[in-house]
Write a protein that binds this DNA or RNA. Structure first.
Lengths: 233, 233
DNA sequence: ACCCCATTTTTTGGATCCAATAATTAATTA
DNA sequence: TAATTAATTATTGGATCCAAAAAATGGGGT
């Protein structure tokens, strides 16, 4: 049965990103292995990999700890995402889109527009939009033809949004979410337009600004110190 | 004796970066373990880590392979380095330097200047300059106060320069190397000036351009296809 | 002679075992 | 009673073992 391997990493990553293992939580190999019903070996490998991704911090002889992400770190990661995806958009524009990529991007935009047409959002809509959103961004990164961008984004992928995912999906703020997501979607259209017209600088600028849209209306925790958005315990 | 662990990763990384394991070389666990005189376990861990870093490619049931880096990938990685270090410089300028950082940066520049004063370069000079150069760049990344930049740079750190290191240290071109390194050093002075004056946009622009200085005068392999600079076999 | 199936071999990944080290606790002494 | 030292415990990391899966090779059949 336990013919898995890579699965342990995904399971643990999910538990960290989703907050089941809150920030600051200490993780030891043996309890985690027992929890998952596997031996220590795959857990050891997973801990190392997640530490390399930046989700876990290694404590000398005290196991691992779920990394606390401060608001400043989230804002910093958003800046990094901005310059990297901005670069991707510029290079994609300069290279010019392939017919295939153009069609797929247009498809993404059409599907996203359909979500916003009815004028309000449900939780399922947001989940659906997030899938389309990721597709759109991945397509542009691929269209840049620069694999180093993908590598650099990898670490950024899960890290900063672990703590804000809960806020993004806050069902109490669905009306505010609508305006924010709709704005982000319109920025997608502008980026697409710049890509079609091969306007590299414009594509870069809009994409860079777009990175901030993910968070602009989200209430981060108020305190400016190192409190986390995922308060442990 | 084998109380090492992390060492195996470093040893293998060195062998890959320095070209002892040339690009395209296939690596299996058992021969590598025997070569290093350790068991398979640390080699397995090292292979996984190096694959995560992007130095190795995992082949389904055929072991690992040293990643081939094409010229286009190197140029792409230089672009990524440019936007990331450009961001670091901008944020460092906007925040303003601490007294401590200012002193350390000035020290770096003074030491670097001393190398170029005699008007020519030896191989030892280049090695020494590379150490100072790394210090300078690391100081600015730290001064940005944005840990996400460091994370994103990590993958970029070894990957693209594995194949060009041999060219950079080519002792036959020491006269050309002098002009190139001296130019890079002067760009450092401009970046430092921008940081002192808290000119974020200027610091970003110069640093972004500076990333290209690493390669601008280096002869990359001529062919535009997927030949590597580190031809295997 | 060629193709397909079976067997063997190679390789990977998980489980368990063992050694070493650091931390914590208890005991003894001042 | 407090501090220091020793002992025990907990935890990590390497080595070895085992099982599963895929690839390669060999044999048999058409």
């Amino acid at each position: 049965m336990p013919r898995e391997g890579q699965a342990v990493i995904s399971i643990l990553r999910d538990k960290i990103v989703s907050g089941v293992f809150p920030a600051g939580e200490r993780l030891a190999e043996i309890p985690t292995a027992e929890l998952l019903g596997v031996s220590r070996t795959p857990v050891r490998i997973a801990f190392r990999a997640l530490a390399q991704e930046g989700l876990l911090i290694k404590l000398p002889r005290r196991g691992y700890q779920v990394r606390k992400v401060t608001n400043d770190e989230i804002l910093g990661a958003v800046e990094v995402r901005g310059v990297l995806e901005g670069l991707a958009a510029r290079q994609a524009a300069e290279k010019g889109l392939t017919e295939d990529t153009r069609v797929q991007l247009a498809e993404c935009l059409k599907n996203a527009d359909a979500i916003f047409e009815k004028g309000y959002l449900t939780e399922e809509d947001i989940e659906q939009y997030n899938v389309i959103n990721k597709q759109f961004h991945d397509l542009i990164i691929n269209a840049s033809g620069n694999p180093a961008i993908q590598s650099a984004m990898q670490l950024n992928e899960h890290l900063p949004f672990a703590s804000v995912n809960a806020l993004v999906f806050n069902p109490k703020q669905l009306d505010r979410e609508f305006r924010r997501f709709n704005f982000a979607n319109m920025q997608h259209h502008v980026v697409f337009d710049a890509l079609l017209k091969q306007q590299g600088a414009r594509a870069e600028a809009v994409m860079k600004e777009h990175a901030h849209a993910t968070l602009s209306q989200v209430d981060l925790c108020e305190s400016p110190d190192s409190r986390t958005c995922n308060p442990s315990k």
